[in-house]
Each structure stands twice: as structure tokens, then as C-alpha cells.
């Protein structure tokens, strides 16, 4: 017999698939997020090009570009449902937990797509060299889970407001600040070729952040969604 949580996971997968097909047809979020990243990266590389930036600045810059690029697209997942009046349709067919998990999965995949383009470009344009690549990739993956988790719940909140665009970045920043600080710190360790052990505190913080944000979001989402 199917349990409630299993049903939520199955429903989340259908919602993710629906959003993916919609995105392939419109490419709204993907275009916004990738164009923002490329334009910002180009602007930064032109500005910094003449100065030789040290690794600490490059690590911070990488996460700042990642954060602001994601802000230009992550909110779309809920704003679209509210603007097209399909949120009620979704409420009539599944439970809130499935909606959050489906949207979270979509935003995570969107971030991965962004990173696939952003990382090689950043390495090339900014002369950014990571000596411990596996550690860097793990930091990026765990950080993306937290970024998607925090971004998705803030997106659900701001989708109900009238001035959505400005609110998303402003509300997300304090929520995602601990993740950014740990992400920058862990990236710095990866750049200097130190070991997994030396980055364990940052990895634990990033993992704990992701787990806490997603768990709290699942618990609170029903109240936001049904508001």
C-alpha cells in the first residue's frame, strides 16, 4: 500500500515533469537565469581584467554571481502559477508537500543547468583555477540544494505579493546569507588544494543548512500555499 509520503514523492515528480515541459516550451526561467549570469560575468571580467584579483575575491565573486543569477529565475516557478491563475488548479489535484518538492526539484535542476554554463565560463574568463576539483564540485552540489531550498520557499512567499521582482532578492539575501558565507569559505579551501577534512566544518554547515531549510519549508509550506 502506498504511504502518504510516497504519494507526495510521486506527485512531486509529476509536478516537476510538468514544469520541465512548460520550461522547454517557454524557456523563460532558463533564458533569464543564464543571460543574467553571462552578462554579469562578462561585465565583471572586463572590470577586473586589468587588475589581478586574488583567489579570495574570485571565490566571493563566483558565489555572488551564482546568487544574483539564481535570483533572476528561481522565483518564476511560483510567480507563473499565480499570474496565470493555475495555483488553484494545482491545489485541487495534490497536497502542498508534493507542490513544494516538485518545485524544489525543478529549481535544483535549473541551478545545475546554470552551473554547467557558469563554471567553465568563470574558469576561462576569470582565470580561476581550482586545485581540488572534487571538493569544489561537492561544495557546489550541496550549496545548490540549499540555494534551491531557500529560494523555493521565498519564491512561494513573494508570489503572493504585488511587487514580486524586488522582494525576491531582498527577502532571499538574509535567508541565504549563511549558505553564501559557508560556500565562499569552502570554495576558498578547494581553490587552495586543501583536503576534504579541512573543509569539513563548511561542508557540515552547508549540509545542515540544506536539511534545515528544506525540512522547515515542508512544514511551513502548507500555510503559505493555502494563504
Amino acid at each position: 500500500m502506498r504511504t502518504g509520503s510516497f504519494e507526495s514523492m510521486v506527485d512531486a515528480f509529476y509536478i516537476f515533469k510538468k514544469d520541465l515541459i512548460q520550461e522547454f516550451k517557454t524557456r523563460y526561467a532558463l533564458n533569464a537565469i543564464i543571460l543574467f549570469a553571462v552578462v554579469t560575468l562578462t561585465a565583471v571580467s572586463f572590470s577586473i581584467g586589468v587588475i589581478s584579483a586574488d583567489d579570495d575575491i574570485l571565490c566571493a565573486m563566483f558565489w555572488i554571481i551564482l546568487f544574483f543569477s539564481s535570483m533572476s529565475g528561481l522565483s518564476h516557478i511560483f510567480v507563473r502559477e499565480e499570474e496565470t491563475h493555475t495555483a488553484d488548479t494545482l491545489k485541487l489535484v495534490t497536497c502542498p508537500t508534493a507542490v513544494y518538492l516538485g518545485k524544489l526539484l525543478f529549481n535544483f535542476m535549473l541551478l545545475l543547468a546554470l552551473e554547467i554554463i557558469l563554471v567553465p565560463l568563470y574558469f576561462g574568463l576569470m582565470d580561476f583555477y581550482v586545485r581540488h576539483l572534487p571538493l569544489f564540485l561537492i561544495v557546489l552540489a550541496i550549496g545548490s540544494v540549499g540555494l534551491a531550498g531557500g529560494g523555493t520557499i521565498v519564491a512561494a512567499i513573494i508570489a503572493k505579493a504585488s511587487s514580486r521582482g524586488a522582494l525576491f532578492t531582498v527577502l532571499s539575501f538574509p535567508v541565504l546569507l549563511p549558505l553564501l558565507i559557508s560556500g565562499i569559505s569552502a570554495t576558498r579551501i578547494a581553490v587552495n588544494a586543501r583536503s576534504f577534512t579541512e573543509a569539513s566544518a563548511e561542508l557540515q554547515t552547508l549540509t545542515a543548512y540544506g536539511v534545515v531549510v528544506i525540512t522547515v519549508s515542508i512544514l511551513l509550506f502548507e500555510f503559505i500555499w493555502n494563504e
Binding site: 506527485d11 509529476y14 509536478i15 515533469k17 510538468k18 515541459i21 512548460q22 491563475h85 488553484d88 485541487l92
Partner: peptide, 28 residues
């Protein structure tokens, strides 16, 4: 247990009718 037909309730405009019904039916 319930369904609703209403002028304010919208289906997904970018999807085809079959895609809409398939996703919403699977969720139901």
C-alpha cells in the same frame, strides 16, 4: 474527492489539452 469548474480557474496555457489532462489526471 472534489473538482471545480469556474471561470477564474485556469489550465496551463502553454501545454496541450492532452498534456494538461494527463498531468492533472496523474496527480488525481
Amino acid at each position: 474527492y472534489c473538482s471545480l469548474v469556474s471561470p477564474y480557474l485556469e489550465l496551463y496555457q502553454d501545454l496541450t489539452a492532452r498534456e494538461n489532462l494527463w498531468f492533472l489526471g496523474k496527480l488525481k
